[in-house]
Design a binder for these strands. Structure first.
Lengths: 169, 169
DNA sequence: TTGGAAAGTCAACATGGCTGACATAAAATC
DNA sequence: GATTTTATGTCAGCCATGTTGACTTTCCAA
């Protein structure tokens, strides 16, 4: 199935959809993602945290005060998985979980100063690689990169992604 | 560190390197990668295989006859990890490990017909998503996507990536 | 007041990373 | 020819992080 015919003439856009092009894209995703996580992973070895902690910290930093449920949706894991991670972060004083003002069942999550410090260390490393790649590829490539990644996301998540507040650190 | 100054005027390329841009890129990678692996993961649930098996099958299909060592380099895992996966694939008749002709210590890996079938099923799903994203983003975006991902890879791996034979299935 | 939602917890299990130790066969080197 | 190195395979055990299922507490809302 899917002939992947390189000689087809269905208009410009089809020229890029050969099996070979698609497979190269798949490999590029795999290799790039591995590099993308490698730097933070190295840093996390010095602490007693893993990649799951990094992800939680990232999103709490991006949307201070977000609820556990929202974080759950963004991470796409079960609450039991998340809770294991979140508990250690709260115990270690990197994350604060405040009882919701309007709805007291909710917990609003914030990074403490200590949490923000680790976030910075991890983020600096990850952004450095991203920045280098952006510089090497150039502005036009960066726009295309973002467009393809967005198109690849599941629609529900894409909405979250697009509406992410610009909090910066 | 890293002021990430949106108002800087260092030339066109620097305008794309604000912290916010970089963080959005980081999130895009995370969300897109999750979607990227979701379809094959769903298929693999029907078998007794996991993501690790998929990766091995992918590269054996791409470079038929590659050695265990080469596969190890591409996957970036230990031989013990790979062996656990490879053993079940050979036992189940999806992969054939032929003794090397020139160097009899080596094993050259090939997909059997059965292995090629599973490869096709997994690959079809993954390529379908990639194709949809490529179509939605357009040819220029695809080129940029590939450029940024390449720039993000570790140099050694990038060389492997670029020299990957065009075997297609 | 009752039902459901948000969060937390315990237990058990699977996958797939890892290290360390060791075995075998074959190539390469001295 | 003896020795060392390389490629592969294997066993055992550990760890991080995902899963399901069951159950509790708190609190909002109908």
């Amino acid at each position: 199935m899917e002939a992947g015919n390189p000689g087809s003439h269905g208009g410009e856009s089809l020229l890029f959809l050969t099996d070979e092009q698609l497979r190269k894209g798949i490999e590029a995703m795999f290799f790039a993602y591995r590099a993308f996580t490698a730097d933070p992973d190295r840093i996390l070895e010095n602490y007693e945290y893993g990649r799951a902690h990094h992800r939680a910290i990232h999103f709490i930093n991006r949307q201070p005060g977000l609820t556990v449920n929202t974080l759950l949706t963004m991470l796409g894991v079960t609450k039991q998985s998340l809770n294991r991670v979140l508990r250690t972060l709260v115990e270690d004083g990197l994350v604060e979980a405040r009882v919701g003002r309007r709805d007291k069942r909710e917990r609003n999550l914030f990074l403490t100063e200590k949490g923000a410090e680790l976030e910075r260390e991890l983020s600096d490393a990850q952004r450095a690689r991203m920045r280098a790649a952006y510089r090497a590829a150039g502005p036009a490539a960066v726009a295309g990169f973002r467009q393809v990644l967005e198109a690849m996301m599941d629609p529900d998540i894409r909405r979250h992604y697009q509406s992410m507040r610009e909090t910066a650190s």
